[in-house]
Design a protein around this nucleic acid. Sequence first.
DNA 1: CGTCCAGATGATACAGAGTCTCATGTAGGC
DNA 2: GCCTACATGAGACTCTGTATCATCTGGACG
Lengths: 145, 145
Amino acid sequence: MTDATALIDALDRAGYRLTEPRRAMAGLISDQTGHFTAADLVVDARTRRLGIGRATIFRALDLFEDLGVVERLDLPSGDHAYVPCEPIHHHHVICSSCGRTEDVDDPGIDAVTRSVARRTGFRIDSHRLELFGLCPACAGSVDPR
Amino acid sequence: MTDATALIDALDRAGYRLTEPRRAMAGLISDQTGHFTAADLVVDARTRRLGIGRATIFRALDLFEDLGVVERLDLPSGDHAYVPCEPIHHHHVICSSCGRTEDVDDPGIDAVTRSVARRTGFRIDSHRLELFGLCPACAGSVDPR
DNA sequence: CGTCCAGATGATACAGAGTCTCATGTAGGC
DNA sequence: GCCTACATGAGACTCTGTATCATCTGGACG
Ligand SMILES: [Zn+2]
Ligand SMILES: [Zn+2]
Ligand SMILES: [Zn+2]
Ligand SMILES: [Zn+2]
């Protein structure tokens, strides 16, 4: 789906060791379509008999998240899902049906945060925006109105 | 902090029984300052020797959430926290220091979602926006620049 | 190349969140 | 006041994520 190289490069650039399990994780992640959970990766690693321990999967996922090449989504269900993405500030549109996501750059939230800051007196440092809906493919198939 | 009556009324209006444990939960929730977790309520219920079971706490919390009088926040830490609030669409500014939140009505996200929909082809059905920062009190005390 | 060791791993135990079951209790309509 | 559908509490259970620790290995260095 995406490119495992980007994940591996990020590790390398940050000075982390390029170990076998980490390379395998990069492969697993880049093969995912749409968002995925830690449990998904555990299952996939198991299926492919990669011999990667559960703890390592969580550790690598945290690492990729710290490096900004993977981002955590908080699904309405309460589950934590992840998507590979660029290490710059942006947001996600998430398909509620197939889980595919697309990055969207900050579309005008600055004005919003400034306005909120003015009205509430809060000093706003960060924000999270998630947009849920149906991707073109899913919208087309379930809703051929 | 907030008003327990609003929580109880919401149950009543939706046709749920007004049981002792649910009234107690409404009390616990309205006494919270800032956001709180299910675990917080378990501790508080225990401390006050209310004799409410853990399962009941989770069940009541889910119920209040369904009724829209309590909303779940996904903290950057990954924890699930809750805040009592009005059952209409709105967002929260969250103080990273004391956990206090303030409701903010939709500040201009509609334009954002429309623009994103146009650019990505997604049909956007819902969204979540959370703003993190420091409330006036906390900003004043830690940052008297 | 081979040596070496800080950093990484996997097994396992553990802690916490949330769910399920089921016998018992009770709200509230009659 | 009775009755029953709905709610509760206890406790077992599942799942996510973390901690510990003995063992292993990437890659720096010679
Ligand atoms: Zn889709
Ligand atoms: Zn943004
Ligand atoms: Zn504060
Ligand atoms: Zn909104």
